[in-house]
Nucleic acid binder design. Structure first.
Length: 253
DNA sequence: ATGTCACAGTCCCTGTGA
């Protein structure tokens, strides 16, 4: 079973590439972030034509998360069930695996109210993880907008005092892990950066100025069945790429 | 280290968010 996460930075702008990628790579389940669509615009029928059932939690101009699945979609839950107005989390059960697509708030700056929102959001995610059904495998994946350690950042000295590397954010990821989840890509590749995002500006991709912020957290039972995890860097190349590349996990289920 | 991209509004540019 192949499970991917991809921040597409507008599913409208990216549809041609997404369609080609789904056709070429045929992942079983895809966790999508930043659809930037309302439900009316979300391409349910186009996905069905490719063999995917789908569930979308959109809000229009910003945010928006989705799940695509070739192995069924059941028990969809959108949002945290509170008054959060931003569409940043959707969960579903696909082929017996609980999957959660997350678009963690950016935070903007350490002294910005959005950073407080980011930390509170991550704590709510930890509560969701802690309350999960432990008899079922789970993948919590998405754009976390946090580098777990300095290995995940091309030059930590440039990020002093910035978001994505700060200790409270990293502590929030460790708290998530403390519920029994493992960062799949880092576990399988302890030493390779495996960046998943490069700024559109400055020729960042070609200079290797990347961050690993797109993560797949899996329970330990699923980790034991993992056979591979990798970044599909080709999707950051060519015409009209997202600024994120897909991250894929493969499991012998 | 800010050289880009996507969106909405009222449009062939500006402000916002990433």
């Amino acid at each position: 079973m192949k499970i991917a996460t991809w921040n597409v930075n507008s599913l409208t702008a990216r549809w041609g590439r997404v369609e080609a990628w789904l056709t070429a790579k045929s992942p079983d389940v895809v966790l999508i972030q930043e659809t930037k669509q309302n439900d009316a615009k979300f391409p349910v029928k186009d996905l069905a034509a490719l063999g995917y059932e789908s569930a979308h939690y959109g809000q229009g101009q910003w945010n928006g998360v989705a799940v695509f699945s070739k192995v069924g979609i059941e028990d969809v839950v959108a949002g945290f069930g509170d008054d959060d107005p931003e569409a940043r989390i959707i969960a579903a059960t696909c082929g017996g695996v609980r999957v959660v697509s997350c678009y963690v708030p950016n935070g903007r700056a350490l002294d910005d109210p959005h950073y407080v929102y980011k930390l509170a959001w991550l704590e709510k995610l930890r509560e969701v993880a802690d309350a999960r059904d432990r008899d079922q495998h789970i993948v919590i994946g998405g754009d976390f907008n946090v580098t777990p350690t300095d290995l995940d950042c091309y030059d930590p000295s440039l990020f002093v005092g910035a978001t994505h590397v700060s200790e409270p954010e990293r502590a929030a990821l460790r708290a998530l892990e403390s519920t029994g989840l493992v960062d799949l890509t880092r576990h399988l590749h302890p030493d390779e950066p495996n960046y998943s995002w490069w700024d559109y500006r400055n020729g960042s991709f070609h200079r290797g100025w990347g961050l690993r912020i797109d993560l797949l957290y899996v329970d330990e039972g699923l980790l034991a069945k993992a056979t591979a995890s990798y970044v599909d860097r080709d999707e950051r190349k060519g015409e009209k790429p997202s600024d994120h590349a897909p991250v894929i996990g493969e499991f012998a289920l």
